[in-house]
């Protein structure tokens, strides 16, 4: 589904690279964890997969097509959905409006379907009462669940998450990773999670470690 082909990235000098010649493949219906120390470049690698930035070398192929050719905006809109550590919800909206907005922007087949959005939220434990409140009135765990529901409500087949459990307690972490597993296994999507927590990595189907500028499968 997604293939990183000879990917390399550096900020200023080619010799001072974060990683190079990375070749990884990600399949639909599977969950992946990318682990590594802080500053190792795992989030940068995720931003390349999410189409938020472009590699300095190599190609990222989605369904066999270079995402540059798809167009970065189109790729982000149709094919990939991102979950962030800080949730990144629209703070002036309710959970329901957050989902409806994301569905409208990404052109989801359920765009404008309030009932579908409410069902998604309910599935993730957001009650009728909560889904109409401003998201800022929700707890961290609830906000992250809204962010995940947003991902589930959109049609993107690739879900990338950057430290999605970073702000959550142990119980919520288990619950959230369980939700990602459901997205991968029940919705058939490809889930890639960047994390520094080994417990989270252990729950994923495949784990890659970025260490000393080199990716290796754990």
């Amino acid at each position: 589904m997604l293939e990183a082909k000879n990917i390399g990235y550096w900020y200023t000098h080619k010799d001072d690279y974060l990683f190079k010649d990375v070749n990884l493949t990600f399949e639909a219906g599977q969950s992946y964890a990318i682990v590594g120390q802080s500053g190792s470049g795992k989030t940068t690698f995720l931003s390349l997969l999410a189409g938020l930035d472009q590699p300095k070398a190599g190609q990222i192929l989605y369904e066999g097509q270079d995402i540059k050719k798809i167009g970065m905006t189109n790729y982000r809109k149709r094919d990939v959905s991102v979950v962030f550590q800080s949730y990144n919800l629209f703070t002036y909206m309710s959970p329901l409006d957050n989902l409806l907005t994301a569905m409208a922007i990404t052109g989801s087949q359920h765009a404008g379907d309030k009932e579908f959005a409410a069902t998604m939220l309910k599935k993730l434990g957001i009650t009728e009462d909560l889904m109409r409140k401003n998201v800022q009135h929700l707890s961290g765990g609830q906000q992250q669940r809204v962010a995940i529901a947003r991902t589930m409500a959109c049609d993107a087949q690739l879900v990338v998450a950057d430290e999605p459990t970073g702000n959550l307690d142990e119980n919520n972490t288990v619950e959230v990773v369980g939700l990602f597993q459901k997205i991968a296994h029940e919705q058939g999507k490809c889930v890639i999670i960047v994390t520094h927590e080994s417990a989270v990595a252990e729950m994923c189907d495949t784990t890659y470690r970025l260490e000393k500028k080199v990716f290796s499968q754990v």
């Binding site: 999410a50 905006t73 982000r76 809109k77 991102v82 990144n88 919800l89 629209f90 922007i105 990404t106």
Partner: peptide
């Protein structure tokens, strides 16, 4: 800026 970033990450024009 943050809101704009979220919109851009969703592929909003």
């Amino acid at each position: 800026r943050h809101e704009i970033g979220i919109l851009l990450s969703m592929g909003e024009a």
